[in-house]
Design a protein around this nucleic acid. Structure first.
Lengths: 234, 234
DNA sequence: TGGGGTTTGACTGTCGACACTGTGAGCGTT
DNA sequence: AACGCTCACAGTGTCGACAGTCAAACCCCA
């Protein structure tokens, strides 16, 4: 008898290894707050909840630990990370470095057609949001740029690791910092720079854009904002 | 009876979990070429070789896979990565992004004493190499800079992941590309920029330094150099 | 002798059980 | 009452075994 039938994983899942399914489930649980930030993660409990053995759960937890969504405290207790100003600063610093480089590479590698398509989607997404019908597609400008950079290592580091943490920060701070209207203009400028094949400008714009996003986040999250003057120099 | 007594892991190891020990062992095996690049990795065989069960080996292999030293081919075969020009380009692009940012941050955060210490160690390492006594300390300028940047996430990405791959590239290309004599001057300039608190210059110098190292690598590794004009724009 | 189906082998995914370690509560001593 | 010690509990580390799957070799038949 699975204790939580709505959570149990059915065997005939065609989603490949159980560890991957458990990984996604735990990730969702963190996103949705079912696994509270800072709470301890119990392998055996999760295994029973999902109706699987501890092996896949263990592997999933280690992978979460690998991308630093779960920390390993002394004495072998696994905990979900806690949001902190320091961690957020580090996240945005790394985004500035990697997304800046990705943007620079995208400016060198994207075809004109790809740039035009992206520009059209950007405008389309804006109109959709103005109409209020912001349903399905969830256009993500940054992810699109990153995936266009052609560097699999950077793509993986950002989309596979950092963006998970970023989504957690976004979810746990309300939609206040969506800032999509402000961001549209900056996104448009970035694509213009890419279109003009000005790689240096594109990188610089992307960095400034992310830095503004970081400052916006800290402005609207006072509980996360023990920022000193030195740290402000992201 | 352990088939390879000199490789078996003794139980009373004080190095913590077996998975960590196996991880280091496999890493060394890749470094030293005992595990050839491109060869398939067999969990059971490694387990028998180390005298442990498949569990820790499995975990170690997955961690190697996480830092992209082992690739997962279709049909679940795990292989050690193969060196390629594309992979090397991606590695150096990521280093330029991350080490550039790390250098910038180090310029903002290091104390004068720390900078002076680093400068002294740099000079000391040079003299030691001139004397030919390049034995113990293995002074690593880049790692020192990175660890001084204060961003744990960047430190982990570089020292925990990327540098493993970089060492493999270095080892599998002879000492030709050591380039330490050429590098000394550039390292010195970078520290000077940090000392002057010119963060932008320090980042720019570090990027240029890494790009030169990349070009040096491709110059001396013709078998890895199907570089097109476009790709040269790292 | 060549093509197609079948068998065999190897390997990974998964599981349940045991062992070891740190923690906290409870008890006795001072 | 405070401190130190002991013991049960909780949780992870590790192990051996079973099951499913893909690949390659093998055999049969035309």
């Amino acid at each position: 008898m699975p204790p939580s039938p709505h959570l149990a994983i059915v065997k005939d899942d065609t989603s490949g290894p159980l560890a991957d399914v458990v990984f996604d489930r735990v990730l969702d649980a963190i996103y949705q707050g079912r696994l509270a930030l800072g709470s301890v993660v119990n392998e055996a409990a999760l295994a029973q909840e999902f109706g699987v053995s501890r092996g896949p759960v263990r592997e999933a937890v280690r992978r979460l630990q690998g991308i630093q969504l779960i920390t390993r405290e002394p004495y072998m207790k696994a905990r979900v990370i806690t949001l902190s100003a320091e961690s957020a600063i580090e996240l945005f610093q790394m985004r500035m470095a990697l997304e800046g480089m990705a943007c620079k590479l995208a400016a060198l590698r994207m075809t004109n057609d790809e740039v035009d398509t992206l520009l059209a989607e950007l405008a389309q997404d804006r109109e959709r949001r103005i109409d209020g019908a912001q349903d399905r597609p969830a256009f993500d400008f940054h992810e699109r740029i990153v995936r266009a950079c052609g560097n699999a290592r950077i793509i993986n580091a950002l989309c596979g690791d950092l963006y998970h943490l970023l989504r957690i920060y976004r979810r746990h701070s309300g939609s206040v910092l969506e800032r999509k209207d402000d961001a549209y203009g900056e996104h448009w400028q970035i694509i213009r720079a890419i279109r003009a094949r000005d790689a240096e400008l594109a990188e610089s714009l992307m960095r400034s854009h992310i830095e503004r996003a970081a400052q916006h986040l800290f402005t609207h999250l006072p509980q996360l904002a023990p920022l000193t003057a030195g740290d402000r120099a992201i």
